[in-house]
Design a protein around this nucleic acid. Structure first.
Lengths: 223, 223
DNA sequence: CCGCCGTGTCGCAGTCGTGTCGCAGTCCCG
DNA sequence: CGGGACTGCGACACGACTGCGACACGGCGG
């Protein structure tokens, strides 16, 4: 499961690949052009870019160079024909792998996983939108910028993000994060959530990562 | 948490992983070879298979193909080296994920949970017609559109849907949903049912999900 | 010894959920 | 056919729950 940005101008191919990759368990965002893609990439980090070579406006090669110049996001190229010129130039532009169209979804997925595996050997990294949680280094970044969390806030975030979507009751959180036997109902959890939100949520009125489920508790991630 | 079948020929690795996965809350059964594993799988179902590639007798790939051909049990592969050939072939054989040996128990557990989460959304999710109830995320969708339920309405729906077809008396519902000792017969339940219906029923004249059994109480689901 | 940071507690305010009431419509039964 | 019981349904006011700021305590390092 990874977040993938698909840059492809042909609407048919774009939707087909988006659907196929979604079925393989990836989160897929799309862009129609190189400019659009670079903008999208700046807005929110992703784990990998699938990049078509034939694009209106900036060429795929140029987009690839800029992506690699900007960061360490791996790129899988999509070429119409496997002629040598494309491949060599593509790999020299910084692509990590390439797949020849028409692409078998299974093959593309296999390549993607292979690239992710060798270019991101760091396991235990959870990425949700612009939030990146490294469970080994115990670091959290928001849109690439490091976020300073206190130990308790970090434990809370780790616990919640371990099961995205699942609702944790205050009771459960007290046991897992604080490990006390919790005497007397307290609003400690609310408080810590509030402090955590102040650091990782951009619009606190509509929290993106830590959501409250009234009457039950809190939940990490998508609605 | 989940029942896992571990197919691994090396006795040391097998016991180590079995112990580690048990500690993470899984039920672990083991098999020493591909044939053994397939037999085991036929004898009793499990939620996921952890499959070593290097096996005596049938190869891991072949075992994987047969498992996927037989049913929908997800497979996590265990490979000695992450070379591309293994990965691509493995994923094409139908593996859902793979972990490179020597495997960190925590990493393996994380992968297992991720695979289980995406390949078995049927866990804790109840679907009846257009209504989908996720008992972990505590979300309800109607024809794909999220429905905002209040805590009491949600508890009511969860209680009723736990036993579709069964009739719950108002008394029972008061005890299970409200947990008070219920003094004085009240029409609280009727009210809450009404509010719930307003949100999930399309034709309230002929309720599809929450039906009233005159003189007795309410029932969830088909006649 | 002093000051800072993290943590737990308290109180206030706004919002939303909830329980009660009353009326009207429906079904059952005499 | 008529009366009574049962249920659907809207309205309303109280109360619970949560967000949020402020403060005090304690540990750790300068």
């Amino acid at each position: 499961m990874a977040t993938i940005l698909l840059i492809e101008d042909d609407p048919g191919v774009r939707r087909g690949l988006q659907l196929a990759l979604s079925r393989h368990g990836h989160e897929v965002r799309t862009a129609e052009s190189g400019e659009d893609g670079l903008r999208e990439l700046g807005a929110a980090a992703c784990d990998l870019v699938v990049l078509d070579l034939m694009l209106p406006g900036i060429s795929g090669f140029e987009v690839c160079r800029r992506i690699r110049a900007a960061g360490e996001v791996p790129v899988v190229m999509l070429t119409a024909r496997g002629d040598d010129f494309d491949v060599v130039t593509g790999l020299e532009a910084g692509a990590d792998d390439y797949v020849v169209k028409p692409a078998q979804p299974t093959v593309l997925d296999a390549r993607i996983r292979a690239v992710l595996r060798r270019s991101a050997p760091s396991d235990g990294v959870r990425v949700h939108g612009g939030l990146r949680i490294d469970t080994e280094a115990l670091t959290v970044t928001l849109h690439g910028a490091p976020v300073a969390l206190t130990p308790t806030e970090l434990r809370l975030l780790l616990t919640l993000s371990r099961a995205p979507g699942r609702v944790f009751s205050r009771r459960q959180l007290l046991e897992e994060v604080w490990e006390h036997d919790y005497l007397g109902d307290s609003r400690l959890v609310d408080n810590c959530v509030q402090r955590l939100r102040a650091k990782i949520e951009e619009r606190q009125a509509a929290p993106e990562y830590v959501q409250t489920v009234r009457g039950f508790g809190y939940r990490f991630g998508p609605l």
